[in-house]
């Protein structure tokens, strides 16, 4: 009786509060619908058409998806994207963790090094890519020049099918390591110092402390870094567009490159959108999988 009375009284207030909430949500919700939901819906619709900016779109059923399955260049792009991700994520994560641990100490100069390592993160990827292209250039580049002074000839990394992806991976790791390092640094600050003191009392050495305290305590941070790195790796574009345009011989052509190719070179918008839908599903699946795998509480 009593409870019912309160409920009856509260309901209109709750509804009123909800309405207020929607009012406050409206601006961002509107932006979300106009710039996220509508484009995704439109893209999805266009994957069932032959929309190419020239003729008016006609319904073609599953034709784009069937073409996708038989498209060698598409599977090549999937392969390249995976190679890139495998190249960037483990090394990049480990390196940023090491740097974070190294720079988390009270030694002179750590602030300087943190700044230096973080600098590429705030620089524009396109500009960084131009600089690295210049560095890698065997005819006019700096690496080639200095290496030739000591008698080493450097090949044309970005022009060799077998090494171009490696060059891109190096640049990407260099570019992003600072961001991940800062996240790890924040994680490290959050570990209670008492844990280390207790371990020291128990006679643990530094390696054991790292293995049994730092790593497990950093689990949520690591999950965040890995998930974000994988997601951004699957969407890599700028550095490849500037440095190789997907070449040589399509060896650095990743999924987003391929989407772009169909969007802006051949103008086969509907097929580009089909590739984008594939990417969307893969990223969604990966995110769910990763969150499930890593979503265990810290011991």
């Amino acid at each position: 009786m009593f409870i019912g009375k309160i409920r009856r009284k509260r309901q209109p207030i709750a509804r009123y509060n909800q309405q207020i909430a929607y009012l406050f949500l409206f601006p961002s919700l509107a932006v979300f619908i106009v710039f996220i939901i509508y484009p995704i819906g439109f893209s999805l619709w266009s994957t069932f058409t032959n929309w190419n900016l020239i003729q008016s779109a006609k319904y073609v059923g599953w034709a784009n998806y069937i073409r996708l399955c038989n498209d060698e260049r598409f599977w090549n792009a999937v392969y390249n994207t995976i190679v890139y991700t495998i190249g960037v994520v483990p090394v990049g994560t480990a390196l940023s963790l090491l740097l974070a641990v190294a720079l988390n100490q009270n030694i002179k100069g750590t602030k300087f090094f943190r700044t230096v390592i973080f600098l590429p993160v705030v620089a524009s990827t396109a500009i960084i890519a131009i600089v690295w292209t210049f560095l890698f250039d065997p005819q006019i580049g700096l690496f080639g020049y200095y290496l030739s002074k000591i008698g080493i000839t450097m090949g044309a990394w970005l022009r060799e099918p077998d090494r171009a992806m490696l060059a891109i991976i190096i640049v990407s790791i260099w570019k992003n390591v600072g961001f991940n390092m800062v996240i790890f640094l924040a994680g490290l600050q959050g570990i209670p110092y008492s844990l280390y003191e207790a371990a020291r009392v128990d006679g643990a050495n530094r390696l054991q402390m790292f293995r049994y305290i730092t790593l497990p305590q950093l689990r949520p941070t690591t999950v965040f870094v890995v998930v974000m790195s994988v997601l951004s790796s699957f969407q890599v574009f700028d550095q490849i567009y500037v440095m190789t345009r997907g070449g040589p011989l399509y060896r650095t052509e990743t999924l987003v490159q391929y989407i772009y190719h169909h969007g802006f070179t051949t103008f086969q918008m509907s097929y580009g959108a089909t590739v984008a839908m594939f990417l969307l599903v893969v990223i969604l699946a990966l995110t769910i999988l990763q969150l499930r795998l890593f979503d265990r509480p810290v011991d």
Binding site: D137, P138, Q139, I140, A156, L158, R159, E160, G247, P248
Partner: peptide, 13 residues
């Protein structure tokens, strides 16, 4: 000739 160059790269060479 070197191999793999784009147009702007040949200009620079």
């Amino acid at each position: 000739s070197p191999i793999g160059l784009t147009g702007p790269e040949t200009d620079k060479v």
